[in-house]
Design a protein around this nucleic acid. Structure first.
Lengths: 223, 223
DNA sequence: TTAGAATAGTTAGTATTACTATCATGAAAA
DNA sequence: TTTTCATGATAGTAATACTAACTATTCTAA
């Protein structure tokens, strides 16, 4: 099976659709690499232009500023994540199995995924872990209609929440639990790599630690 | 009872101790107000100087850059939070009660707290919720010795983890659960205010929602 | 085939930001 | 009284984020 996936990212996030040209795709691809390498604060359109063999002004044709570009990348990631969730739980009947699949996806490195993706999913993963806050926690998100910006994240949250509600219809906080699950998976990835004392990574087998922690958490909460 | 609290913030975070002069205190106070008002990206030393009735260069005497100043403020917050936890669990014997106090502190607005604090704790609270990531998730935190920067956060985490371990000595992930608790309390505050659909805030009494969610979570996990 | 539209690139700017080097002052120490 | 030193003021630079105006290429539809 060989297929491509493409997502409709809100057109509020770009001036010209980067999917629509070679240069556009190049810009997003290189942006992901560059942000991964040097971090979002050091990342500038000037540096990106030099990596993409074009000029600063060309990038400004596609994105209003580097903030919007980050939001574009984050949106893409959450779309892809929801696609993976829906794909992998297909034909599963047991909602406990479905939840395990969700945790598996949230905690694993995405580099071994599919869909003939143009972007480096491992880098994407790391960017979402390290830079999400800088994209979402800004004053002018509200100007930008936060519904547009957060839609993919909201959709993923709703998907997971609905699985939770099937598994345990009496549980009162399916949405809050979904976001906690998503965010905790990222935090624990960041902490276990950079500040392991903030986790319990040493007590168990390292690679599975986060998965074990989250599964234990989730199924104790849901009974 | 009337007392002052003061914390030793890592001297890696400042060039000259702002606690040591009137201007220094003024700078930190005004910085908190300004970051709360306009957000960390819009915040500049120039604007801060004009608020503090001094010049940019004076501020640079105290803080190397606005990043370090944010880290200073965050450090101060976590120190204060740990102080409050230790203060409020004193003389409590039941570790379940202690955990309830912790959740209470993490979810309430700090504006009604004590210790004759010079800083606006409500603003501080909001800054930690909205701007933490921008302070901690930076490439050069490692250069700066992350142990120094994260010490107050680590200490708080360790304090909570030890209460958890007393409550249930068999639980395997006390530290990860602590950080998840801390971070979730902030996320849920942010989401319930800005993106309520990502939470279940409508289903229950609004003011207590986060407390209920976290208590339910914590005690189901710990049994 | 060719005119016009769309796309991409060039050049040259400006305002703001982040940061530095140097100088001035006033009060305490020698 | 002189020296020292903490503190602040002045003025500047380099980089960043962005804009404007113009040129070159390519693609497409009459």
């Amino acid at each position: 099976m060989d297929f491509h996936v493409r997502f409709d990212i809100s057109d509020k996030l770009y001036l010209r659709n980067p999917e629509g040209s070679e240069l556009g795709k190049q810009i997003v691809q290189k942006a992901i690499i560059l942000i991964f390498d040097i971090g979002f604060e050091q990342f500038t359109f000037k540096k990106l232009a030099s990596e993409s063999n074009c000029t600063e002004a060309s990038i400004y044709r596609y994105f209003e500023n580097k903030h919007r570009l980050l939001l574009y990348i984050l949106s893409w990631y959450w779309n892809y994540m929801e696609f993976l969730v829906n794909f992998k739980i297909m034909n599963l009947n047991d909602s406990k199995e479905k939840l395990k699949v969700v945790i598996q996806l949230l905690t694993q490195d995405l580099s071994v995924e599919f869909g003939n993706i143009e972007y480096n999913t491992h880098y994407l993963n790391q960017i979402v872990i390290a830079e999400s806050g800088k994209g979402y926690m800004i004053k002018d998100v509200s100007e930008l209609n936060s519904n547009e910006v957060f839609k993919p994240y909201k959709d993923l949250c709703a998907t997971i929440a609905s699985i939770i509600s099937v598994y345990n219809p009496n549980y009162e906080f399916p949405h809050s639990l979904s976001t906690t699950l998503i965010e905790a998976s990222h935090q624990q990835q960041f902490f276990s790599k950079n500040l392991p004392r903030l986790t319990d990574v040493n007590t168990v087998k390292k690679s599975d630690f986060i998965k074990l922690f989250l599964e234990d958490m989730l199924f104790k909460i849901l009974g």
